[in-house]
Design a protein around this nucleic acid. Sequence first.
RNA 1: GAAUUUUCGA
Length: 249
Amino acid sequence: GYSYSSAIHACAAAGRWEEAMSLLREMKSVKLGPNVVAYGAAMAALANGKQWELALKLLDEKMYAVEGVKPSLMCFNAALHGLAAVGEAKRARELLGAMQQGPRSTRPDIYSYNSAIAACGPGGKAAEARELLEEMRLRGTAPDVFSFNGVMQANVGDGNWAAALEILEDIRRAGLNPDTASFNIAVHACAVGGQWQAAMDVLEEMTEAGLSMDAFTYAHAIEACCNSGNRVTAVALVTELRDKGLPLR
RNA sequence: GAAUUUUCGA
């Protein structure tokens, strides 16, 4: 049982969901009832492989209905992650609701909410992301930096760079510190908006916060400069990036 | 003892 779960996990990490699924099936023929962890790992494999339809099917029709294995929180979370990866915001929200109902009722945790928020990113569903942030608060789960980063990302997807930048303040108001990803998303917002000055301000904030710029930071900052016609600064940033030995994204 | 969350990839 344990080795099967590990093997399935290895397939997930390697992005080989087909093999993960056949291992899951094999567990049955070997008379090892697939357990909840094996299912969780298979769910993660499907999520990584962007096979969200299969993941939902496994969750809805197979796991509990046929095998009698109650999906754990992690199973739901892995499925939610799969939906997030393809920007299926609506279905993610539905699953978030569904997991709280019926005989397999499970209370969502911060991972669940963060994945549902992340699902809003690709489509730029900023309003939905904010609603989820509110919802988690009301339900007694305090948002963390990941939650806010997800909301920021949804604003970037929406093309709303100013709203994205304001979230840096929201993070601080919540008593948290923006992390490297927060600043990178903020700089990316500036790139999308063609705002090189704003990008420079963010870089300064980032440095003041004691964080160092990584390859993503530079890539987004350079893009911001290019998008607003500041070639001089763009070139200076490329030089700086090289001096630090960072790869040009 | 094992499974889940944020930065666009060519």
